[in-house]
Nucleic acid binder design. Structure first.
Lengths: 195, 195
DNA sequence: ATCAGTATTTGATTATTGTCAAAAGCATTC
DNA sequence: GAATGCTTTTGACAATAATCAAATACTGAT
């Protein structure tokens, strides 16, 4: 059983080794606390108003985070293979989520409950170090996205996205991508037509 | 001497106790590694191209981070009392900074060299926990700013800023605030005139 | 108080993007 | 393969913000 779990989580450990390699003992403890979950297209992982108590790791599939504004759904992030996803604000503060998380494809994710994470931090300093390092990467990523959002044109942001995640066009409806870029669907369509 | 240092850093420890209280031993180790520095208006803390090897804590004063684009200076963040500031990307990756950091007032900051921080993490798990928690707060703050940047109008962002940091208007030139909000100085001036 | 330099406001015009509405394109199901 | 629902594109117009230029207000030093 452990052997099965281990092989199932191989992509997870391969990935986190890029951040900070864990000792076998810490890996084993992590494995014991992760729960694999399977979802299908359009399934909801979280709906606004609920408290998000899990951190998820995407083994396979795609998700979006969105909130509603004036009755419209505003997609503001995507998650793909090897991404950590959660409603960060809700997960950290314990307050109700203002966003929804929905699957865009058939997906396999691993869920780690918040209270288990705290226990891992207490027992294995190295797991807290891993998370600290992951935060650094994600913070830098968000900083870049912020600078793009505020100081680049819509067309530049689109070009950027295509370079960084060319697969996104085939996996995500254009309307979601437009919202993600902070523009309307019509504007994105026009940007595309004049390339 | 230690007593002097301790009293000088009181505001720092008062502040971080809100995040995560440290043991006396960890506090003492932190104190030994911090260096107090004094700067005057328009002094540069960092210029682009240099590697930022320090984390700073602002005891008193104000700073801005800015980069140059098409010959213009784009201010993209401010730091005030009790803020941690650094060129995060450069500090974490060890690459040359793309931004500049400049003082807007006479300021007192505490500097902590990166290599000392790693040593503290190794010796005191709790210091790494503190940083992990600080990252969480700063990540959530940046997320909010990102959502504002991409999904709210310039006028809303200005209102927001006034509520969150009303003192900013008296301490920072309007041109810097406009860039921070992602608009031109003229547009900000017009927004102000029609309130 | 005056001057020089800087910061802020105002005006006219242009560029970009949003909004509302309709048409065209695609995919899925019966 | 026709019909349905959903996605994407196109069109006309309005709103928002940028740009360039000039005027006004403010600040600090003499």
């Amino acid at each position: 059983m452990l052997a099965y779990l281990h092989s199932a989580m191989q992509s997870f450990f391969n990935h986190i080794n890029n951040y900070y390699p864990l000792s076998p003992a810490a890996q084993e403890a992590l494995e014991e606390n992760f729960v694999q979950m399977e979802f299908y297209k359009n399934d909801m992982l979280l709906t606004e108003g609920k408290i998000c108590r899990y951190l998820y790791f995407v083994e396979k599939g795609a998700l979006r985070g969105f909130y509603t504004l004036d009755g419209k759904e505003i997609t503001h992030w995507f998650g793909f293979e090897n991404d950590f996803v959660t409603s960060f604000h809700s997960f950290i503060t314990g307050e109700a989520a203002v966003e929804n998380i929905q699957f865009l494809e058939h997906s396999i994710v691993w869920a780690l409950p918040k209270e288990k994470i705290q226990g891992l931090f207490d027992r294995f300093h190295e797991t807290e170090r891993l998370v600290r390092i992951v935060y650094e990467k994600y913070y830098i990523r968000l900083e870049e996205r912020f600078v793009n959002a505020q100081f680049k044109t819509a067309a530049e942001r689109y070009e950027n996205l295509l370079q960084q995640a060319p697969y996104i066009l085939t996996r995500v409806p254009l309307g979601y991508i437009a919202a993600y870029l902070g523009i309307t669907q019509e504007t994105l369509s026009r940007i595309r037509s004049r390339v």
